[in-house]
């Protein structure tokens, strides 16, 4: 049924921290590993060992560089930075991918808000992928069926696996703790509090999809030029007079038998 539920009991989704994501793609691989053997047909690869390998993935990491006004290249302007940007289905409240589906294959669950594709009904027309602004749906080239993030619906309620594993595969895997899973409909949930505290935001709110998943902005950073007295700077300059701690100790030790040479001077 491709009309959307009026409201859902829960709003399960992900909160992704753009400050801590290191762009390792571990979540991409964990997602593929779980979902190629789980819900629905496999996530096929084309020419996996050939000249132009490609395949279906439900989660992908883009990497952006952000250059403040006046800067041309990274680092020219103090606050420029690189942001790794994981992207998967945002399980939108007003999901256009559901309403456009002619077959009833795409649907949003009234109990938890998860958006799924019933593969037995999908005819592979691709219209749902057209309607998604986020590129969250990919047609599997081998199966001719639409694939998308299931929020690991076959893990999160799965009582045959240890409780600690009953979260989406990407969240379980992330080594940086950049991915969080929970009920964004409950203002008291950990994820809702995190979103409130860190100023979590929606992607392309102007598209009117009301995404459930939220993104946490990169934290404020001190400009690099403020960082003169870090160990890194000390080790690379003559100015080690007031270096303290570990670098201070190295400096003192190395300076002992030599009066005219300091670290960093060759």
């Amino acid at each position: 049924m491709t009309t959307l539920p009026q409201s859902t009991d829960k709003k399960l989704g992900l909160v992704i921290d753009l400050d801590t994501c290191v762009g390792c793609h571990a979540c991409v691989i964990a997602c593929k590993e779980w979902n190629t053997g789980g819900y629905g047909s496999a996530l096929s690869d084309q020419q996996p060992y050939g000249a132009e390998p490609e395949g279906s993935f439900l989660n992908r990491i883009h990497t952006f560089e952000i250059v403040p006004e006046g800067g041309e290249v990274i680092d020219q302007s103090a606050d420029s930075r690189v942001v790794h940007f994981p992207k998967s289905c945002l399980h939108c409240e007003d999901a256009p991918c559901v309403t456009v589906c002619p077959t009833g294959a795409s649907y949003k669950r009234a109990e938890d808000g998860i958006v799924l594709v019933d593969e037995d009904k999908c005819m592979g027309c691709g219209l749902c992928a057209w309607s998604c602004a986020y590129g969250a749906r990919e047609m599997d080239i081998s199966a001719g069926i639409m694939k998308k993030c299931t929020l690991c619906v076959d893990r999160i309620y799965n009582e045959t696996i240890p409780e600690v594993d009953r979260i989406p595969s990407c969240v379980r895997t992330c080594p940086a703790g950049a991915r969080h899973f929970g009920d964004l409909g409950d203002p008291q949930s950990d994820v809702s509090i995190l979103v409130a505290e860190r100023g979590g935001f929606d992607l392309m709110p102007e598209q009117g999809n009301k995404p459930t998943n939220k993104y946490l902005p990169p934290r404020e950073r001190k400009p690099l030029s403020d960082a003169v007295n870090t160990g890194f700077e000390a080790a690379n300059s003559d100015n080690v007079g007031d270096a303290t701690g570990f670098f201070g100790w190295i400096d003192k030790t190395l300076s002992k038998g030599s009066n005219n040479s300091k670290v960093g001077e060759e």
Partner: peptide
């Protein structure tokens, strides 16, 4: 708006 990072500067891929 796609990345929500516009407040930091110009976003490039």
């Amino acid at each position: 708006t796609a990345t929500g990072l516009g407040h930091l500067g110009k976003v490039r891929l």
